[in-house]
């Protein structure tokens, strides 16, 4: 029963407008000539020029991307292992604690994660003499910790949905455990692992609260830089920076959506053909 309801569609239109009007407004005012960010003073691209020549912004962006690449990769490795452990090992000592540890960071408010990570680093410095200075390493460790559990959740649900007899079939055909993992399990869950990596990368790139607790002098990530500027009010150069980020993300998401949609369509066509051929 697919019927149109004016009410439903007007709420949908309102909701989408609600989601996008602020973003478009922000992009619009990034081309504002005036220094006053919210009053239109004519068209100009000067803020973009200033943005790309601002070494502070570039350095912060490079640091953020470095941290995000490293932490997403580590989080994917550890998170995938945890997902495999929880989905495929029926019993091991401390399984209940582990499944708790995997879900807890998802509901833990960032302030608490941030403070507790900072306290750990302070205590470690006190007792072990490490880390002497907080910065790149401590931020990365904190990011790995809270983003790996997202990877675990994704990988675990993919494994739960996977037909276990496929792994049994590989073993039945003579594969040793590690060969089953290499030839069958990992290739099949690889889309889930990839989306886990992307999610971990995004959360790391976006995080400001946990970073602000675990950072040290000289290590300012892009969100921290934005945070310190935003606290002082709205400025056109932040509008420009925001527009660049939004555009990059939108283009990336759109491209991957098109690729996914194509693959889906091809698959559907294949299935149709297979059914038709059988008749």
């Amino acid at each position: 029963m697919k019927q149109r309801s004016t009410f439903l569609f007007s709420v949908l239109a309102f909701g989408l407008a609600f989601l996008y009007v602020p973003i478009f407004s922000m992009i619009f005012f990034s081309f504002n000539k005036s220094r006053l960010a919210t009053v239109w003073g004519g068209f100009s691209t000067q803020w973009y020029g200033k943005l790309f020549s601002n070494s502070q912004v570039i350095d912060a962006a490079v640091l953020s991307i470095k941290i995000a690449l490293l932490s997403a990769t580590m989080a994917t490795i550890l998170g995938t292992m945890a997902g495999l452990a929880l989905a495929r090992f029926r019993q091991f000592r401390g399984r209940a604690l582990m499944s708790g540890l995997v879900t807890a960071p998802l509901i833990m408010p960032e302030v608490i994660t941030g403070i507790s990570s900072l306290l750990l680093f302070i205590m470690m410095a006190e007792w072990l003499g490490w880390p002497g200075q907080r910065g790149f390493t401590t931020i990365t460790i904190a990011h790995i910790t809270f983003s790996m559990t997202y990877v675990t959740v994704i990988v675990q649900s993919r494994l739960a949905a996977m037909d276990m007899s496929i792994e049994e079939a590989a073993m039945d055909l003579g594969s040793k455990p590690w060969q089953v993992l290499r030839d069958v399990t990992l290739p099949i869950i690889s889309p889930a692992v990839l989306s886990g990596w992307l999610l971990a990368f995004t959360i790391s790139l976006d995080d400001v609260v946990i970073t602000s607790f675990t950072t040290g002098p000289g290590y300012t990530t892009l969100p921290m830089l934005i945070w310190s500027k935003v606290k002082l009010g709205v400025t056109p150069d932040i509008n420009a920076l925001a527009s660049v980020i939004v555009t990059v993300v939108a283009v990336g998401v759109a491209i991957s959506a098109v690729i996914l949609a194509r693959a889906d369509k091809r698959r559907e066509r294949d299935i149709q053909m297979a059914i038709a051929a059988n008749k």
């Binding site: 407004s25 922000m26 919210t38 790139l205 969100p223 934005i226 935003v230 709205v234 925001a242």
Partner: peptide, 12 residues
């Protein structure tokens, strides 16, 4: 997109 920037958009 950035959470922080979405908050920022509303400040504007």
């Amino acid at each position: 997109t950035s959470f922080l920037l979405r908050v920022y958009a509303w400040i504007g």
